[in-house]
Simulated assay, not measured.
Amino acid sequence: MNTTRPHPPKVAHAGQPGARDPFGAHLRHWRTHRRLSQLDLAQEAEVSTRHLSYVETGRAAPSREMVLRLAERLEVPLRERNALLVAAGFAPMYRQRSLDDPALAAARRAVDLVLKGHEPFPALAVDRHWNLVAHNALVPMLMEGAAPALLQGPINVLRLSLHPEGLAPRIANLAQWRTHLLERLQQQIAATGDPVLQALHDELEAYPPPAVHHDLPAIDTALSAVAVPIQFVTPNGVLSFITTITIFGTPVDVTLQELAVESFFPADEQTAAALAALAAQTAR
């Protein structure tokens, strides 16, 4: 598994072509979404500009190899690569299965090991739309106090975090964390062009601005210079975390490519001690 995630430049969102649209419409969408001219893409894919133009306008049909080469150069996610293949008249190449599918048993074990191994600190796994897939024993502690409607499956962790009836009132540095999450979501939209993520971004952005103010404990200056912390108000005091995202490095399954594990690390000694004590109480 890989702990890095690309951060493509922001681009204007445009609606994706439908399932019945021709291959050329899909190709043009991704080419313009990546802000490439036909000449740029032709050079990247090592094809003639004339042939690429013919493919985009429907005057020429691409081979399966050509579809995959263009998708690779355009960094099209696996789900959308299947749509490109179907639009060109070929069978989908990448399977999409539930994480509970026996074929993904090894991957599920890897996720569970990461989650369990991260205790006594919180860790969770989410799908491409930030819906909760799995979590370790510490995560329910972070969800305490949220409105029951937000805790009904599927739980969207971004909505839960920023909703006024969710965790937002307990996030001491809500303004800073809200800005971070919206920027992070915008980067994902730029990479995928996913309209569901765009709708989620618009919803979160429309939530009322932070109105609760807390006295924040000091964050290590060196730490805050490289990571945005999240600070939770709890009965045990303010707990400060930084987070990392872990993804599968070489997925050939749609589900695995879209799966991410977020791990919370204590940003100070007080948080580490409080979580260790809480884990000890829970284990009794």
Results as ranks from 00 to 15, higher is better:
Gln186Tyr: 01
Gln186Arg: 10
Gln188Met: 03
Ile189Glu: 06
Ala190Val: 00
Ala190Tyr: 02
Ala190Phe: 01
Ala190Ser: 15
Ala191Trp: 07
Thr192Arg: 06
Thr192His: 02
Thr192Leu: 00
Thr192Gln: 04
Thr192Met: 01
Gly193Asn: 06
Gly193Asp: 10
Asp194Gly: 02
Asp194Phe: 00
Asp194Ala: 01
Pro195Ala: 02
Pro195Trp: 01
Pro195Glu: 13
Pro195Tyr: 01
Val196Phe: 02
Val196Ala: 15
Val196Leu: 11
Val196Glu: 14
Val196Met: 11
Leu197Gly: 02
Leu197Asn: 05
Leu197Thr: 06
Leu197Ser: 02
Leu197Phe: 00
Gln198Tyr: 01
Gln198Phe: 01
Gln198Thr: 09
Ala199Leu: 05
Ala199Ser: 13
Ala199Met: 04
Leu200Phe: 03
Leu200Ala: 04
Leu200Thr: 04
His201Gln: 05
Asp202Lys: 09
Asp202Phe: 07
Asp202Asn: 10
Asp202Arg: 13
Asp202Cys: 06
Asp202Met: 08
Glu203Asn: 07
Glu203Phe: 09
Leu204Asp: 04
Leu204Ala: 06
Leu204Gln: 06
Glu205Gln: 12
Glu205Lys: 13
Glu205Thr: 12
Glu205Ala: 15
Glu205Pro: 04
Ala206Leu: 06
Ala206Thr: 08
Ala206Ile: 05
Tyr207Ser: 02
Tyr207Ile: 07
Pro208Trp: 13
Pro209Glu: 14
Pro210Gln: 12
Pro210Tyr: 10
Ala211Asp: 13
Ala211Val: 09
Ala211Lys: 08
Ala211Asn: 09
Ala211His: 11
Val212Pro: 01
Val212Ala: 09
His213Cys: 11
His213Val: 14
His213Phe: 11
His213Gln: 13
His214Phe: 15
His214Ile: 06
Asp215His: 14
Asp215Tyr: 09
Asp215Thr: 14
Asp215Ala: 14
Leu216Gln: 07
Leu216Asn: 03
Leu216Asp: 04
Pro217Cys: 04
Pro217Met: 07
Pro217Ile: 04
Ala218Asp: 15
Ile219Phe: 04
Ile219Tyr: 03
Asp220Leu: 01
Asp220Glu: 13
Asp220Thr: 03
Asp220Tyr: 11
Thr221Glu: 12
Thr221His: 12
Ala222Val: 01
Ala222Arg: 04
Leu223Gln: 09
Leu223Met: 11
Leu223Asp: 06
Ser224Gln: 14
Ser224Ile: 10
Ser224Ala: 15
Ser224Asp: 15
Ala225Arg: 07
Ala225Phe: 10
Ala225Gln: 09
Ala225Ile: 04
Val226Ile: 12
Val226Gln: 08
Val226Cys: 03
Val226Ser: 05
Ala227Asn: 12
Ala227Ser: 15
Ala227Leu: 12
Ala227Lys: 14
Ala227Glu: 14
Val228Tyr: 07
Val228Thr: 15
Val228Trp: 04
